[in-house]
Design a protein around this nucleic acid. Structure first.
Lengths: 340, 340
DNA sequence: TTGAAAGCGCTAACAA
DNA sequence: TTGTTAGCGCTTTCAA
């Protein structure tokens, strides 16, 4: 068993409340008393029991982060943003991997909300249609969403009374930059390697892709897009098939950097040089995008900043759950490298 | 404020203790009573207050993971192993990034040990000599180390009374496999791209590298190794310099996959074809090792298994802190791909 | 099979 | 400036 405040109080011959005051730096305390207490604390090696404190104050100073998979470098970066900001404000972070599974997510939410965390940050699930939180089971806890689409937010808003808080990067704009870059490079036949629908974030990229092509009077067609799970193993085969079916393509716009890598493999397999025979643009700018050969042109999402903004918003929201928090749409940016 | 056990008890017209029994599935309870209680629980939406429970039981069912940077894909994978195992056993995981900084680490340890977590898993710091934990400040909390060297463990053991628990992969063996593979491929002049000394894990690779070359009567020399921070930006320049200084090299053994990527860039810059002009072997087998072009031959460390074993060991240790836990040295494995 | 009372270690109100 | 008292919501004796 460890040292309690009471023991410190006895040791320092003061009341327990005085110790509490010293520990929390509150109230006016005479210098000599404070010194005595401090001395007792260090001598006994006292450390406050956070569980007891949390029980009284109803605040655990922990927040939860629900994420599909922390191994995904994109999510890892966001988590660092959250974590660094949380730490600055005295919060700890509990990460729960959901593997993009609704039941896992609900289970995690339930576990965390049992007064364990003061709030939650979560991505909307990727591979399925967004569902309104099950009011029967899912607890009402201050929550900040990341990168949710207006549509899924509308669904959410309909299901809850309190205002929804969402932090997003400007995916549509980023996707436009990518496709416009390819057009500017003189490409007229551009294919797209896309994620599986319905993905809350795919739609924005699709729309941008179609919009830009249409605006430039370039050919576009549903058949110019191939949909797949964003996994490298599938990407290579899918990209190869797409290029074989559309030999006119001189460029590919990819849903994310992993798919872009798959496309690079496909080009290697087909003997197509990058970027001369086929230009490739990715999305996210994960760490290794700069490291592959040739380095990947991609759209950078400000991942840490996304996490930072989410954490800040959550801290506000935990202080005042009813507050309507307005957040800027974070800027995305085209990073031009060797693959275009 | 949320529903308490007392309210459930009143609603179900039983004592608070009976509710507790139902919630925790303990003791014999008549079917009808249990039903009534269950009904009250779901109707009121009761969820136990974990802080209160932790206060009484002295167990928070949370564990901490101290890591340099969760964005490093190697650490992320280990964390998944920990997390999945922890979840199976009812534990949550708090991740603290230390950026390989001693003060950060101590601060995190102090914060977590204030009865917040029941135990901690940590990597030894990489870039500095291992230090004995400061007994004044660092709290004594069940701890499991990952991938510590015998030397650093000895230092630790001297400073603490309780037995040290450490989970390791067989780095030396893996490094041997890598260099032996290069030798078997006919390479006689093999350089090494190494991390910065003193790194607790570099030594094992160095020793393996020298041992294998010596055993085969191949030339080895301290000047055949270049030391640098394991960052891509530095790696390319360092590899280039090494290859220019030693034109006889036909193969490079790299400290990790990031450095290997840097070496690949250097080869591209020098117009050396991989693997015909220069073979490259990495270490770790991070996710993108298979994704680069050509795919990287590398030594796989069982990252998730490392995390899993660490979590299991910690769970044992938390149950019985004095227990001496014997753990197997986890097997490393050479994954041969296109870069050799 | 069920219940009453005590207390985990802390903070919050109110006194002194 | 300092102390006293009463809980926070739960589990743990012990008793019925």
């Amino acid at each position: 068993m460890s040292i309690t405040m009471r023991e410190v109080a006895e040791h320092a011959k003061v009341s327990i409340k005085t110790v509490s005051r010293v520990v929390n730096g509150e109230g006016e305390i005479s210098h000599s008393t404070r010194q005595r207490v401090q001395h007792a604390i260090t001598q006994l090696g006292y450390r406050p029991n956070l569980m007891a404190r949390a029980l009284v104050t109803q605040r655990s100073y922990m927040i939860g982060f629900l994420v599909a998979d922390i191994c995904n470098p994109f999510f890892a970066e966001v988590s660092r943003g959250i974590q660094d900001t949380a730490k600055e404000h005295g919060y700890h972070l509990i990460i729960a991997n959901t593997d993009d599974d609704g039941d896992e997510e609900l289970a995690a939410l339930n576990a965390l909300s049992a007064r364990l965390v003061d709030g939650v940050i979560k991505f909307n699930r990727q591979t399925t249609t967004p569902q309104p939180p099950d009011q029967q089971n899912a607890p009402d806890i201050p929550t900040v969403y990341i990168n949710s689409t207006p549509e899924s937010l509308a669904t959410l808003a309909a299901a809850t009374q309190s205002p929804i808080t969402n932090v997003s990067a400007d995916i549509y704009k980023g996707a436009r930059l990518a496709v416009e870059h390819l057009v500017a490079k003189g490409h007229r036949h551009i294919g797209m390697l896309a994620g599986l629908a319905p993905d809350v974030n795919l739609m924005r990229r699709r729309r941008a892709y179609f919009d830009v092509l249409r605006e430039h009077g370039l050919p576009f067609d549903e058949s110019h897009i191939v949909h797949l799970l964003p996994r490298l193993s599938d990407a290579q085969a899918a990209a190869k098939q797409l290029l074989l079916a559309n030999p006119q393509f001189t460029a590919l716009f990819c849903y994310n950097d992993v798919l872009a890598l798959g496309a690079m493999h496909a080009c290697a397999e087909l003997g197509r040089k990058i970027p001369s025979d086929c230009a490739i643009v990715g999305f996210d700018d994960v760490e290794y995008a700069a490291a592959v050969l040739p380095p990947l042109t991609t759209v950078r999402i400000p991942k840490r900043e996304l996490g930072r903004q989410a954490a800040l918003a959550l801290i506000q929201k935990m202080a005042n759950p009813a507050a309507k928090i307005n957040l800027p749409l974070l800027k995305t940016e085209l990073i031009v490298r060797g693959s275009t």
